[in-house]
């Protein structure tokens, strides 16, 4: 960041953009990062194959289809088949990426995911597109806000929720090169890019994007940007210095980073575009409760379904905007005694 002071050590170390300057922030859908990463994964390894359930353009598999037509398979609207067939391809040495909307895969295919991918220790990678309420006007039927819960509960499964399109590209490549069943979750709408090419990325390693010891805001996915904005405003308005942790790997979660956040900050706010029940924040709570109990507030969807609307409108309505994050942080801070 250009204006270096002690508070920006983390942002420098992570090679972030100047996220405080809203005017210069670029907004690109995370799905674009998936599309770019998949083409690169296919360049690096001819055994990477992609199977799509009739959503090539919107999941951004279309680029792979053009770049690697001989590695691309179309099967139509059949999400259970997507998983099971990929299991067969993986058993024969391929690294299959399968894509649909998160609502349908893993939403419709959960038992195949559990049996054929996870119990079977198969090298299948799920791309869950259009996750969260930010899919917008399509409404509740298409808004996957339970997918992290149903995936993180399965043994062997890796669950990764990158924070922007640049990181989604890196995560796609990294998962392609790491053996084992995996779920990559990303979104439809344009969202802020906060990382750069130089920002490190490692599966299972949470990242501190902002230093602070009053409250730790632990976020995943596109709401990470809201967390950063909220942290800056809290510092300015209340003098509360928040640590912001990009907790992109929900499973296996970086327990050390969560434990350190609890011990060093004494209060935590979790932020995710997902039901607060059984999502990323719940896993944080499990770790904190076991090692070093501190107050936790949960920002996310509060046990209800979404509806049609514009993405920003829905994020605000369901309590995941910057104002909601700030309120949660103030509450958590007050609960520290």
């Amino acid at each position: 960041m250009p204006s270096a002071d002690t508070k920006d050590v983390a942002a420098h170390a992570m090679h972030l953009v100047d996220y405080r300057d809203a005017a210069t922030i670029q907004h690109v859908p995370t799905r674009n990062g998936f599309g770019e990463g998949l083409i690169e994964a296919g360049n690096r390894n001819k055994n990477v194959v992609a199977i799509c359930a009739d959503l090539a353009e919107s999941t951004r598999m279309e680029g792979f289809k053009k770049a690697h037509p001989e590695q691309y398979i179309e099967i139509g609207v059949a999400e259970q088949l997507l998983v099971a067939m990929a299991g067969g391809l993986a058993a024969a040495g391929k690294t299959p990426w399968i894509a649909s909307y998160a609502m349908f895969n893993p939403g419709r295919s959960w038992e195949q995911v559990r049996t054929i991918m996870a119990l079977n220790e198969s090298n299948v990678k799920i791309a869950g597109a259009h996750a969260g309420v930010s899919v917008g006007p399509d409404g509740a039927t298409h808004q996957a806000i339970e997918d992290i819960a149903i995936m993180r509960v399965i043994p062997h499964m890796m669950v990764v929720v990158p924070c922007d399109s640049v990181q989604t590209k890196k995560a796609t490549i990294a998962l392609s090169e790491k053996f084992g069943p995996a779920y990559l979750r990303f979104a439809r709408d344009k969202s802020a890019i906060v990382t750069t090419e130089e920002t490190p990325f490692e599966i299972g390693k949470a990242q501190t994007f902002r230093d602070g010891n009053d409250v730790a805001i632990v976020a995943c996915g596109i709401l990470l940007y809201n967390a950063l904005v909220a942290a800056e405003e809290l510092a300015r308005e209340d003098g509360i210095e928040c640590r912001v942790v990009n907790n992109h790997t929900v499973k296996p979660m970086d327990e050390g980073a969560i434990d350190a956040a609890a011990r060093e900050c004494g209060a935590i706010v979790t932020v995710e575009e997902h039901q607060v029940h059984a999502g990323m924040g719940s896993r944080v709570a499990e770790i904190v409760a076991q090692h070093h109990p501190v107050p936790i507030e949960f920002v996310g969807v509060q046990d209800q379904f979404g509806q049609s609307g514009e993405p920003t409108e829905l994020i605000e309505h369901y309590g995941m905007g910057t104002a909601a994050i700030k309120a949660a942080a103030r509450k958590a801070y007050k609960r520290k005694s």
Partner: peptide
């Protein structure tokens, strides 16, 4: 379905 994947 898995057999289809293997055969492919």
């Amino acid at each position: 379905a898995q057999g289809v994947g293997m055969a492919l």
